[in-house]
Design a binder for these strands. Structure first.
Lengths: 267, 267
DNA sequence: CGATCAATTGAGTCTCTTCAATACGCGTGG
DNA sequence: CCACGCGTATTGAAGAGACTCAATTGATCG
């Protein structure tokens, strides 16, 4: 039952240098957003300065704490600094569906303030830290700096692209493929933010939550994970998932990262 | 097998007055987009004029014709004038998932030009007519007119909201609920554009395509439709779907239109 | 009046769910 | 330091919803 390589933590939830304000400026929490946006968009010095200069309030939330409640007005405008958050919707019969998972650095509804009433909830998955700014300040920046406006639009479009891929996952792939796909996606997203080693990741959720994410019962999740392990595609040690062969897992998960739009856009 | 009320067409695919250029301006095709955006956002006279003045090219496409191909650069920037279009993704095993359905008036990738490579395909479902404008013209308008920029952002966010609801549909609802939900959604979207009567709609797709949309096999779609009909929730006459009791169908489909964001936003 | 595609129906199978119970890990308090 | 309690993980067995395979009917069109 014990891992042959020992229990090396593949991921650190709080990475030194990310948690702390990385630049000068008012308080600099939003500079992290700048780094994130710079992954896919070109920002000039002014754009970065504008973000770094935002007066952000730092907040901490315990697991299941709400950032946004379905049915309530949307006022939040935040960046996830540490920990994981998720979006969820609930069906009439009580069934839950996690429709998105957010990793540190993700923008949380910088734009959704354009919609009046939240159509879903956003909650902390683990203990998290977020930086929030007033809605007005964000709208101002959006108007004043075209570069940031475009970058945020692109961020939004990439999230929509993930939604589409998840629909394909839910609608047209079986349990095994679905879970392998999700693990591949999460791994690559974490590695991109330097939050996971190449050889594996720590799953930040219970099997029940994973079930709500991939549209399966926790029982079937459990059996499917075992199946993946028996086939050598993953090695489990508590919630540590070691991935001996990323390409093999990607194949099993029908995973092609194109939809993540990891490349930097031209303009 | 024949409908007791006869075969009254509930929907006309090409509505007089919508197909034709409704206003003056260069050629006015994009004025339709203005009317659409005005459903959820406030546009001033200048915004409308800017849209109406766009030099748009009118194009016609046969069913299955591509507007956008997955893997290709995104250059299209269009509005759907008549007919239906859909977005789809394909799994490795050949399974298809329709991830969005577009009705006349819908904006087709006004914004996706911000992403380099298309992650999915957009195709005509029926014979369609679209109005396209050069990418550059759209980007210019987006920069020059804040009101339009916000309206288009909101349009994008609403589409993302539909994606989330569809994920819930695919992941957590059974076949019957799923289909009832989709029918309720389509009906309300069509009625909003005056493309369907209150008592029903014409389904613009085959049962196989409906299967690809709700993540089911065509056989099971067929049986589920029959089940809905046997319970009096719908009455079918070819592809005409009569809905005797909208509230009942909505209940069966666990349908709450909040996610469509039909209300007009404040700012 | 075939030809063709969509819709329908039947029968059997399988994936995934439901129900039920047990084991494990970990923090807490005695 | 160990017993207890609780949430998570695991396993078994049975049932149901959806799928596959196969064949027939129906509608439309040249």
């Amino acid at each position: 039952m014990s891992s042959p390589t020992g229990c090396v933590p593949f991921m650190r939830v709080s990475v030194p240098g990310i948690e702390a304000p990385p630049t000068a400026g008012a308080n600099g929490h939003f500079a992290m957003l700048g780094r994130r946006l710079a992954l896919h968009s070109r920002l000039n010095a002014g754009d970065r300065a504008a973000l770094a200069g935002l007066q952000a309030e730092r907040r901490r939330l315990e697991p299941y704490g709400y950032l946004i409640r379905a049915g309530q007005p949307t006022t939040l405008c935040a960046v996830l600094l540490t920990g994981f958050a998720f979006r969820q919707k609930t069906a009439g019969d009580g069934g839950r569906q996690i429709v998105a998972l957010h990793v540190p650095g993700d923008a949380l509804d910088l734009q959704n303030l354009h919609l009046g009433i939240a159509d879903h909830s956003v909650q902390a998955l683990t203990r998290i830290e977020i930086a929030t700014v007033p809605k007005a300040a964000m709208q101002e920046i959006e108007k004043a700096r075209i570069g940031l406006s475009i970058a945020m639009t692109r961020d939004m479009l990439i999230e929509a692209s993930l939604y589409r891929e998840w629909m394909l996952n839910l609608g047209r792939r079986d349990a095994r493929t679905r879970i392998a796909h999700f693990l591949s996606e999460l791994h690559i997203r974490l590695r991109r933010m330097d939050l996971a080693a190449t050889e594996g990741l720590e799953l930040p959720m219970s099997q029940e939550q994973l079930g709500d994410l991939v549209g399966l019962t926790p029982i079937h999740v459990n059996r499917t994970l075992r199946g993946l392990e028996e086939d050598g595609l993953i090695v489990r040690e508590r919630r540590m998932i070691r991935i001996p062969d990323r390409a093999a897992l990607a194949t099993a998960g029908d995973f092609d990262p194109a939809y993540l739009h990891l490349e930097k856009a031209a303009d």
